[in-house]
Each structure stands twice: as C-alpha cells, then as structure tokens.
Design a protein around this nucleic acid. Structure first.
Lengths: 336, 336
DNA sequence: CGCGTTTACGTCGTTCGTAACGATA
DNA sequence: TATCGTTACGAACGACGTAAACGCG
C-alpha cells in the first residue's frame, strides 16, 4: 500500500468514479491512475469499486470503509506537513475561507487586510456561498475555515468558535413613514409594510418569522435576496422596508438610505468561525482566528488548540462576553 | 512522504532511537533506514530527531507531534488491511491477547479451544502479565485484546466490555479450623489467620484490604503471590488461609484443599475485555469477544462495533445481567 | 578500536507517459 | 463513433544492499 494509491483512490471517488477526470485533477496520466487502483485492489484482495463493463459502476461496501480510512490517512498526512511547515517557521501557505456574503463584504475586509499585512506570503481564498454550500466545501475539504451564523447542525465536522453577536437594522429610503416615529420601532410598526430581507436558510427556521409569530403577527415578506446589497437596491427603489444585519447597514449608504436600529426586536445572532476538528492549524491560522474573534486571549487560543470536542470549546466561552458588531461593521460594545 | 518512511520513523522511535536496531527489526539494511529518515526530514524541512554527533540524541518537539500523527496513519493502514482481509473472507490472521494469570489459566483455556476449532488458521498469542504490563503491551500495540479485572484507569486507549462477575473463594487445607465453622464465614473469622492472597496491584487500591477496613479489621496478610497456583502451593504447606478468585478454586484441588465460598465477604469483581478504540476488528475478533462475553447477543455485538466511546459501551450494558463465574471456572448463574 | 551513522555506488524493481487496444452505449 | 478503461513498452527514477568512510567514546 502506498500513500499515492490512497490519494488516487480518493481522487477517483471524488470525481464520480471517473478515472480520466481523476487523472487530470492529479496532473498525471490516466493509465497510471488506473494501474495503481488495480494494484491496490490486488494487494488488498478486495474490489473497491464494482465494474460496469470496463467503467466503474459503484463503490463496494468494503470500498466505502476503505475510503473512510483513506480520508483519515490523507488528513493526517496533511497535518504532518502543516506541523512541519510551522516548525520550519515558514510563513507561507494558503488559507481558504468559506463564508456568507455579509461576512465577506462587511466584516472580513479589514480583518483580511490586517492578516495580509502580517502574512504577505499566505495565499487567501474566499469562497462565498450559503450555509449549505459552505457545508459542502467543508465536506470536500476545500476550506480551512467556515464562517457563518447559526446552522450549527450542518457543521458537525467542525469545531465552532463563537465570535461576535449582532442585531438587525432596518433600512428605509429617506422620508419613509417609519422615520417619523419618534419612539422605538416595534414589530407591529413593521408588520404594516412589505419587508425585504434575506432568503431564509433552507435548514433551521427563520428567527425573523418566529419573532413576528411570537407577537401574533404575520410579517409581510415581499421580497427576499441572498445578500444585503441586493436588498438595499430594492429598498432604494421603494419596494419595501429592508431588514439586514447591522454590519451591512453601511455608513456609506446613509446618503440615500436611513438606518433604524432594530436592537431588541429580533433575537440577537451569533456568528462563529469553525475549523475541522481533526486538522492541525498552522500558526497563521491561529492568528486569523484571533483576528476574527479578538475577544480571545492567548491563553484561550492555546486551550482551543487542545480542545477536541464542541463541548470543550463551548466551555471555554460560556462565561465570556462576546463583542457586538454594529453598523459600519464596527465593534460597538460588549454584549451582556 | 511515503508510508514506508513513516514506518521506519516509528521503528526508530520504538527502538530507542537506534537506527541499526530498527533496521534489524524491519528486516532491511541500516543505511536504507537512515536514508529514508533523512529524506523524510528533508522533505518536511524539520529535524525529527536531534543529533548527538552522528547518533540520534532525542526527539524534537516537532518530531513528537509527527510521530503521534504517524502512529494514527499506520493504525489506519492496518485497519484498511484488516477490513480488506475480512471482506476477502480470509479466516486467517493472528490474535494477540494480553491477560493475567487467572484468566489465562482458568478461564481462557476452554474459550480458546472453541476459538481454535472455529478458526484453525488464526494464530493465537497469549501474553501474560500484570495490569501494568498489559497496559504497556497496549501502548506498544502488541496485543489486540486485553483482559483484566479492575484497573480501568490504565486503559484509556481501550474500549472495555464488561464480561463477567466473580467472587472470591477461601481455600484451606483439609481439617483447618475454619472448616469446622458451620455458619457462613465472616471477615472476623478470617482476620484470625494469616492470609495468602494476590499481590496488590500497584495502582488502584486493594478491595480486599478495604473490605476488612470497612469492618474495623486489619487483615493479617502473611504472604502474597502473583498467581493462584503459587498461593495454593503455600496454602498446602499450611502457611495460611488462601483467598483467590473463585475461578481459580479448581475442582481438581479438592483432593487436598477445601474450598469455602466467600460470596458476599468481598465486593464482587468484574472482568472486562478491551480492544483499541481506533482499531478495526476482524470477524474472528468479534467472535472471540462473543465467546468471552457470551451474554452478548448479535445485536449488541453490532452496536459495539459502532460504539466509539466508553460511555457508549457502558450504555449498552448498564441494564444487563453479566454472568457470574464460580469454582472450576464454570458459569454458575446470572448475577443481579 | 568498537559502535553506530552517513556516503558512494551498482543493481533491480517501480512508476510514468505515450501509444495502441478493447469495451460499452 | 465517442467515451472510458486496460494493456504494452521504453525511459527515468527510486529503493535496496554491499562496501567503505567518518565521528564519537
């Protein structure tokens, strides 16, 4: 058995049992991959894939279990490489982050700027998507970090570090009736207008809808979009009242949009950053983590390295104040 | 990086950083091992071992972590081989068991006889030792199963399956005063005589001493030995009253020794069988497990396969009756 | 000078890529 | 006939073992 054979095996599996495609991804010849697969199967004495004529048809039960194990092995091989590179004090490498639009657009820019300053030789890849798509990226081992809000159930392979809280903000065009109310806006006020907000996540229920339902109200959701910029565009066009993450209520928008703080109207959300529980983190990854969750002290970061279960991670933060991010993406204050 | 390099690395480490010894164990040439180590270090860009002149001096911090990971990898490689061999329906292989004298001498013989009948082509290795020695065997990955009583804390790498209970028996020469007592023997009765029993485990406290202490008595332990056969010999010589596991109060001894049941005098003990939590079990291993813990039904065996934490294993048995083993090694009855 | 590691080098087996072949839909 | 996997073969590479050199105690 050779590591290369296991690598080929995984590549074949991950390319839909197409040896040609796997060979291309591996930058090698197709007969080579074919042969190594055959050698592996011969050595083990089992078929890993069923054959449909000459094509691969499916994965045998033995194959499934072998693939599982091969995954662990390749992960550990990567870990050894990471470890070594870190001890070698090499500050190059690459960092792939899967995240949602709000984070990518309103929160990460300054963090990434700072990170680039500290690690100019680390390549950065930002992969944007829905929670589900990010979960897929995790599955395929495409990203080092996932950053999202809620949807914890999709990320059982990751350890999630709670990073900050945020509330929602209401955005309306200047002169909108809601701006005339001089007391605190209520859900009842909002229920009168068509709302423009985020597409509800496929999984997990919408905390927005729930907030209305708890007051016996039915929100009039006129339009949903995946990202705040689209929502703002439609709000500008007078299509409704926008409800977005406070971080997305950008200062720059105040020229043509009015931002109303909606703190207290909806449950506060918590954004987390997650990493594979079985992956070794390079030093620059730890630093990124600290940039993203700056409330973490060095000691906690160190404890985090040792934590291997979500419970252990939660334990580290359960009595901790997380920062609260407000408009313009700034950290406003510490939340209770 | 190659699997062979990792294998060599571990061999060097396990042979006290002596490359020559490692090469011999690997049935290969010493320069080959030396070279592969060097190549690995070069590829990773870190020293794994510190050098003392030309000899290896110690393990670097990076080396320690790399060795840890390499262990996992080699374990998974073994797992893949095991899996494959099982699917190939090969009923050969080998089974190494680490256990104590009592098990090896009084309990395992008939189990092993049955096992050999079912799997004549599986090589069997019985390694006998104290709990501590067995723990070392586990550490060095020398055994597939460990069988012992108590000492759970020594075996955190294993999943322990409780297998049966047993009580102690008192053995005395014929005509000993204790045989004249026609009520149930008490600890007070025993305290009058010098006792001959097992060497107390280094770790964990002696339940025997504790039982006496709970009644305000101080036992007069005259002599301790590691195994029941030695104890019996000294009891025959009139050196004291023997206290041994009931299984060891062999029927054959009744010619010259009298066996007095001590049920209730001392806390009941539980013998378990343990296997590495990260190892895949071959079919014959599962069957051995079932032979040793026959109260397990097929369904439980299947659940066991999936269990990955000790809690999950305990859960499977917490409302289960374990068999009770009595004199002559027979299973007497189900315990409450 | 013995012990253990590294270096040097010739041999042999393996991997790789190209090219040709075979099978399937 | 297009797609995909296997077989065949020569070139390049890498692993292994022997022999010899080196460093240390």
């Amino acid at each position: 058995m050779k590591l290369q054979q296991l690598k080929y095996l995984l590549a074949i599996f991950e390319n839909g049992l197409n040896i040609t495609a796997a060979a291309e991804r591996l930058y090698t010849s197709q007969p080579g991959v074919s042969k190594q697969l055959k050698l592996l199967e011969e050595e083990l004495g089992v078929q890993i894939f069923t054959r449909k004529g000459k094509s691969l048809g499916g994965v045998t039960p033995a194959g499934e279990r072998i693939i599982e194990r091969a995954r662990v092995i390749m992960q550990e091989v990567d870990n050894i490489r990471s470890l070594a590179a870190d001890y070698y004090e090499q500050e190059d490498g690459s960092l792939s982050i899967g995240t949602t639009h709000t984070q990518a657009r309103y929160v990460l820019p300054e963090i990434i700027a700072e990170f680039r300053k500290r690690f100019p030789n680390v390549g950065l890849n930002l992969h944007q998507g829905t929670s589900e798509q990010i979960a897929d990226m995790v599955q395929g081992n495409k990203i080092d970090f996932a950053i999202a809000t809620g949807s914890q159930h999709l990320f059982s392979d990751l350890l999630l570090v709670p990073s900050y809280h945020w509330d929602r903000s209401i955005i309306v065009p200047h002169g909108h009736p809601l701006t005339g109310i001089d007391r605190k806006i209520t859900l009842h006020d909002l229920a009168d207008y068509p709302l423009v907000t985020y597409v509800f996540s496929f999984s997990g229920e919408s905390s927005l809808k729930r907030a209305f339902a708890d007051e016996g109200l039915e929100p009039n959701v006129g339009f949903t979009a995946r990202d705040a910029d689209v929502i703002k565009t439609y709000v500008r066009m007078g299509l409704g009242v926008g409800i977005v993450a406070s971080m997305a209520a950008d200062c720059a928008d105040k020229k043509d949009l009015q931002v109303i703080d909606a703190e207290g109207l909806f449950p506060r959300s918590t954004t987390w950053i997650g990493y594979r529980r079985d992956a070794v983190m390079r030093r620059y990854m730890l630093e990124f983590l600290q940039l993203f969750a700056p409330h973490m002290e060095d000691k906690q970061l160190d404890d985090l390295r040792r934590a291997s279960t979500q419970e252990a991670v939660d334990e580290l933060f359960h009595d901790r104040q997380l920062p609260l991010r407000g408009g313009c993406g700034d950290t406003v204050t510490a939340a209770a």
